[in-house]
């Protein structure tokens, strides 16, 4: 196995970590919709200590793409220019909102920042779905790896479907996370009710996404991806019944597995490509034509092999410290 493949796997691992961890943060943000202000406070408390470190998974995925596959980083980020602009606005608002929300004892002030958190969770969740779908479906990438389309080419029905799928999956994942973190019985009941709907909606969106992928992408040429997606759907349906039965831990673990499998499935379907060109298959970015030199890959491999486990240990420790349920008081 050459280092290019190692790094393809590592990038997939980083995106998996990102989607699992920020997945429930985004989900919690989305679930703040329609809640009262005091309820929203509790929701925010559930992710307060961890959201920032979870977001670093995205930053690391970006930085690692830059280091290992510079052309992938360059093409992806310039292609998704306006989409990323929108995502950055959303993430800027969300990040500042967590900090400033509680600084003033004023209801309008808090409402405003809550709106920013909802917006800042919904938009990135949607756009990451759009982005992943576009990588797989293919974009007008020319022989020089430059994007030859415009913003609206990114918004095909298939990509938007994937975006909605991500939103629903993350919302369900977030609901399962909250069911483990909240203490308020009334909120928990409400979550359980919501989970019934969110679980089925996420599952249906998944089904549509897989069916659409069969027509819109070349997943069928390599069955492994489809098999992974199908199994992930099985796990998701299990999660749905766990959530309904109030088996909170099992429900959360199974949505975590669903997201992990989905991300792996996407990367398996992409492999060995990183970004598909729909102008000419040879113009696609692959783990070879987009990569850094073996030397850089080697240095970064050593760094990643040492550092990623260390990060996992201390980040995991944080979750242990904050394992208690949060309440409306204190």
């Amino acid at each position: 196995m050459d280092l290019n493949i190692v790094w393809f796997i590592l990038i997939a691992v980083l995106f998996t970590g990102f989607f699992i961890l920020e997945g429930f943060d985004y989900g919690v943000g989305i679930l703040m919709l329609g809640k009262s202000q005091s309820e929203r406070t509790q929701l925010i408390r559930a992710i307060g200590p961890v959201w920032d470190a979870n977001e670093v998974w995205m930053i690391t995925a970006g930085g690692a793409s830059f280091a290992a596959f510079p052309h992938f980083y360059a093409s992806m980020f310039s292609t998704f220019y306006l989409a990323l602009f929108l995502m950055l606005l959303a993430l800027i608002m969300r990040g500042v909102a967590f900090e400033l929300r509680g600084k003033l004892d004023n209801s309008d002030w808090r409402n405003f920042w809550d709106g920013a958190i909802i917006f800042g969770s919904l938009v990135p969740a949607l756009l990451w779905g759009v982005a992943m779908a576009n990588l797989l479906r293919g974009l007008p990438i020319d022989s020089q790896m430059h994007y030859a389309g415009n913003f609206f080419d990114l918004l095909s029905p298939y990509a938007l479907l994937a975006g909605i799928f991500f939103v629903l999956l993350f919302a369900f994942h977030g609901a399962n996370f909250l069911s483990l973190k909240l203490a308020d019985g009334r909120l928990l009941l409400d979550l359980q009710r919501k989970s019934k709907f969110l679980g089925i909606a996420a599952w249906l969106a998944y089904l549509l996404f897989v069916v659409a992928s069969v027509f819109e992408t070349d997943v069928m040429s390599k069955m492994t991806g489809v098999i992974i997606f199908a199994s992930a759907m099985g796990v998701l349906s299990a999660s749905w019944s766990f959530a309904r039965e109030g088996k909170q831990k099992a429900a959360f673990i199974t949505t975590t597995v669903t997201i992990a499998m989905t991300t792996v499935g996407l990367f398996v379907a992409l492999f060995p490509r990183l970004m598909v060109s729909n102008l000419l298959p040879e113009w696609s970015l692959t783990i070879y034509n987009a990569a850094s030199t073996p030397k850089t890959l080697f240095i970064m491999t050593i760094a990643a092999v040492i550092l990623v486990p260390v990060v996992l240990i201390y980040q995991g420790w944080t979750y242990k410290i904050f394992k208690e349920r949060v309440s409306g008081r204190g």
Binding site: I59, T60, G63, A64, F69, P70, H71, Y73, A74
Partner: peptide, 18 residues
């Protein structure tokens, strides 16, 4: 990013990781 990625990406990724 294309021209410099082999060099510039490493410290950026290390910044995130460390």
């Amino acid at each position: 990013a294309r021209f410099m990625g082999d060099i510039f990406g490493a410290p950026l990724a290390l910044e995130a990781l460390t």
